[in-house]
Design a protein around this nucleic acid. Sequence first.
DNA 1: AACAGAATCAACCGCGCACGA
DNA 2: CTCGTGCGCGGTTGATTCTGT
Length: 341
Amino acid sequence: MVRPPCCDKDGVKKGPWTPEEDLVLVSYVQEHGPGNWRAVPTRTGLMRCSKSCRLRWTNYLRPGIKRGNFTDQEEKLIVHLQALFGNRWAAIASYLPERTDNDIKNYWNTHLKRKLQGGGAGGDGDGGAAGDAVSPKPAAQRPASSSKGQWERRLQTDIDMARRALREALTSLDDVKPPHQPDAANAAAGGGGATTGAAASAGADSPAASSTSGASQCSPSSAGYVLTTENISRMLDGWARKKGGGGGRRAAGSGPATPGATESASGLLEASEVSYGGTALSAAAAPASAFEYETKPTVTAAAAADAGDETQLSAIESWLFADADGIESGSLLDAAMDYTF
DNA sequence: AACAGAATCAACCGCGCACGA
DNA sequence: CTCGTGCGCGGTTGATTCTGT
């Protein structure tokens, strides 16, 4: 059957999002929660395709997103995970709660793939379109795309495989095997064995999907509206800078920047800058809101709330090595991260 | 200072799966 | 069981910025 386009081409705006559109979208999501994207354009009046709305939210406006400046640890973790999962960016992103799959994908394609190829260390010899050669099998074997149901099942298998593979790979790199803390691992793994699959899927699945299932298990503390404001503020900041700094970048692209937009953006920028002075403040000040269930519910959601990368990675690592008895996470991580490009 | 090529990243597109009617 | 719809994923594109000449 011929499937109609997700949105008719007429009257659907494309290209860069304006601050106004972002605000409309954020307001809507704040009020109704993410999901039901199909209804978003009609209910908000946004001249955007539902997919576009979802994408914008997921990749840019969602609370708790960190942008740019991948740390060394993140970088190396991505490399490892890519080797294990192939180009399943959503799965990889689930290990990096503050990063979006799109961001990771971009980073991989622009930085890491080249690094690996250039360094010649990874064995990513082919330099294929998506750079999936690092992975022994998964990327090659998997179907072109996967959705959550099948995905969840497969992910569970992948997780086991990943743990095993990592353990095998890393134990050879690191001889130190002090005891591991199981409760951190269990907690990170999503609680109980009964929910293992669900936890995995929630973590692996996209935020939107998790909006229903992940509601209860994610930490709301880090995901208040203030954080969204922060994101918007950041965005507006960049937007204003671009605008003021000469040569409106995307503002010039599809004509998003109207004089009114400039004004409102500036005003909002000021307001938002006043309203938040840092992540901690934001998180602390954040009231429980519609965004509670919106955080990317990953194994490290709680840890990520107000901790740095180290904490996050420790949690991830704890979880990854949950069944790696007798292996200390710290040293393992160090070993895992001791990757030379 | 001007230009060209490279790099980056936000956004779009098409496909496939899940789920409800 | 079939069909239609919604959603999510991975790949790709295109606009903009950066860097070198």
